[in-house]
Amino acid sequence: MDLSTIIIYGIALALLIVSLVKDRGKTKKAIKKGWMAFIKILPVLIPLFLIVGIVLSLVTPAMIKQVMGEESGIIGVLIGMVIGSVAFMPPFVTFPLGAELLSNGAGYPQVAAFMTTLMAVGLVYWSAETKFFGSKAVILRNSMAFIASGIVAFVVWMVM
């Protein structure tokens, strides 16, 4: 377990104790509310993680290295953005892969385009996100994140 997880557990536990000291009944209610929020999200999570598993087994780091190594320039940036939007990767895979892409000859803008869309544009999250906020909000958020990634790639291109 990494440090941030431990900190979050610590904060939650401290808040729970404060709540318990202040009011037992309210705390019980709060725990129940939290549990219900979790139960409600479960049916959304099951298909989501199935899709994540499917994407993980189809879009591998090796494949990304192949596709991103060859194209540079604006085409390379666009390829990076498209793959980043579709793919899913846990952070501990993402960043070492980014470093590897760089050492394999991909440029910083291309890698930036790929990694920012990978984190912020979540096509695998689409259906889950829609259930929480409606489809229009989801389209707008993902579009903003996609455009933001393009801008990041551009700035990296200019500055680095």
Partner: peptide, 20 residues
């Protein structure tokens, strides 16, 4: 499973926030 390890405090805080 790795998500399940992280979310309990998040949902606990959602509950606390909702009530308090």
């Amino acid at each position: 499973v790795s998500m399940l390890k992280i979310v309990p405090p998040i949902f606990l805080m959602i509950g606390l926030l909702d009530i308090w």
